[in-house]
Design a protein around this nucleic acid. Sequence first.
DNA 1: CGCACGGTTCGGCGGGCGCCGAAGCGTCCC
DNA 2: GGGACGCTTCGGCGCCCGCCGAACCGTGCG
Lengths: 237, 237
Amino acid sequence: MTEKDAEAPGLARLAALIADETRAACLLALLDGRAWTGGELARHAGVAASTVSEHLGKLVAGGLLAEERQGRHRYVRLADDRVAQLVEDLAAQVAPGAGAHRPRTLRASSAGSALARGRTCYDHLAGRLGIALTDALTGRGLLRQDTGFALTDAGLGWFEYAGIALRPTGRRPLARACLDWTERRPHLAGLAGAALCRHALDAGWCVRIGSGRAVKVTAAGERALSELLGTEAAELR
Amino acid sequence: MTEKDAEAPGLARLAALIADETRAACLLALLDGRAWTGGELARHAGVAASTVSEHLGKLVAGGLLAEERQGRHRYVRLADDRVAQLVEDLAAQVAPGAGAHRPRTLRASSAGSALARGRTCYDHLAGRLGIALTDALTGRGLLRQDTGFALTDAGLGWFEYAGIALRPTGRRPLARACLDWTERRPHLAGLAGAALCRHALDAGWCVRIGSGRAVKVTAAGERALSELLGTEAAELR
DNA sequence: CGCACGGTTCGGCGGGCGCCGAAGCGTCCC
DNA sequence: GGGACGCTTCGGCGCCCGCCGAACCGTGCG
């Protein structure tokens, strides 16, 4: 029993880092996987620069953010994929509360939203695009979702055939499920998800829209994915 | 951008529920998967009954706990396995900070701890026992960890052969990785992990030690697991 | 060289929240 | 029916923490 008590303060301190609305807004913004400057985050969250400066100090000290200073700018980004996963999980947990009507309105009324169609979630693809790719991989027997969440041997072969290298780094799992907050369905994250996203951007299959995390599939991407996964162009839009 | 701002308050509110040390202690205690009374939790956390009563009210209102009232007792338990998973994930995230020396001391100095040997984590087996079973399953090709975390077809057959029914309920994944906080390694959670744990207790493979979440393998359990998974008795202790 | 600008530090204000003890309510048991 | 017990409500206390504006520091640019 006593060892649990030893954990409680740490758990509370970690949660407290996320428990502030301004810090939460920063973390969600940083889910796009990029580095933001303090000023950008301040404007985004609608608070004074001095306020955000203190918040970033706490988040960095708490290990949630990594910082990089360039000239007079302070760039921060999520410390690693574990933190990104954690924030996504927490965000997914809070959404079901409004989940009964949220997906409807998001998909229907604002179906024109570029974010709902496709976006990056930290370092992998999400939104309808992410779901479509995950479904295509599953449908062709490259990804198993029925007994967990893992690539099959055929799936490993597919990545190799597609020219997407999967070099294991550290202990990050190859495949991992990430729950989408608009579609309410799991999509491919982990090392393979990140590699696929990176390749999609590098090879010109997708391009970023504006400065946010929204992405859209290009004509070349439609052709390549149709050939590699048999997807219909309409599914990707 | 605006839809992220809409999420920030919810995220902060959820995190705030965990951000209090007393509430964190309650959540960690409830990770044993059982229902506790308010008084028990108050004594465990070392605060007045009135204080814990208010905390439980918030946790229930926030959807993290489910309550059941019986006579003059108020029983609470974690609302569902998603909440349990969330708390485990957060606890696992905080541990690495002290992870450099923690595991050593836990395994070495207090290697006699029954909790480190075997315990239940919400509704599945953890500790060295959980790791040993997960390793055995993986070693025999019943569980894949190299490309994600999923049972193989042979694994499905094994559960059937062992007489452990895996009836899918809701959307809970069949296999899921749960990071152990003493061993720092993933072990089997999800539907299959829960079914295995339940069967192990029902069939007398394991028995609970005292009233906590510590468990130990019986002689009958050693025989059964040796036959079914080829484990050595020493690995399970 | 000097101004503009991003970031940080500091003091002070205000609100929120966890804590307790006392009092009250309902349940169970003798 | 009376008393013990578990839980809840309420008032009040104290602390912590997020916020701002002002002053300050350093970088980069004209």
